[in-house]
């Protein structure tokens, strides 16, 4: 059965510590390796830092779900077209956000929710197939 934790945090980098704590706890329960956890920490950190720069947000909504050996993080509600582009478009030879996310998590997706959107990151245990 899936376990879901929903957080509503101030849109500041300080909130990252809280989010990492939740990700770490759930990741440990999934028996994620340290490398897996470092990857999801890194991806979440870079996504949030970029979002805070690009989007004028007061609060962030973060939903973390675990099921079937995978950890799924959905964050929003974003409205910045720049952020959407950075998440989805990779420019060759650039260590851009798109490349960083794809190097660290198994799936990156953008979910439209009316006027805004959420960015979804999925991390599986190393060696787990979708």
């Amino acid at each position: 059965m899936a376990e879901r934790i929903t957080l509503e945090v101030p849109a500041t980098v300080n909130a990252l510590s809280t989010i990492r704590t939740v990700l770490g706890g759930l990741g440990a329960r999934l028996d994620f390796s340290l490398d897996d956890l470092e990857d999801i920490y890194l991806a979440t950190g870079e996504l949030f830092r970029t979002a805070l720069q690009d989007d004028s947000l007061d609060r962030l909504s973060v939903e973390v779900e675990v099921a079937d050996g995978e950890l799924r993080l959905a964050a929003g509600a974003f409205s910045s077209p720049e952020l959407r582009s950075e998440v989805t478009v990779h420019e060759e030879s650039c260590l851009d956000l798109c490349m960083l996310l794809r190097s660290t998590v198994d799936e990156v997706d953008v979910e439209d929710t009316g006027a805004s959107y959420r960015v979804v990151l999925v991390k599986r245990r190393a060696g787990e197939s979708p």
Binding site: A11, V13, T50, L52, Q53, E82, C94, L95, D96, L97
Partner: peptide, 20 residues
Amino acid sequence: REEIGELENPQILHPSGNDK
């Protein structure tokens, strides 16, 4: 992040500057 912020080139991907 800091360096690319200083390049003032918004077209370069991952142009985030200082933390909010």
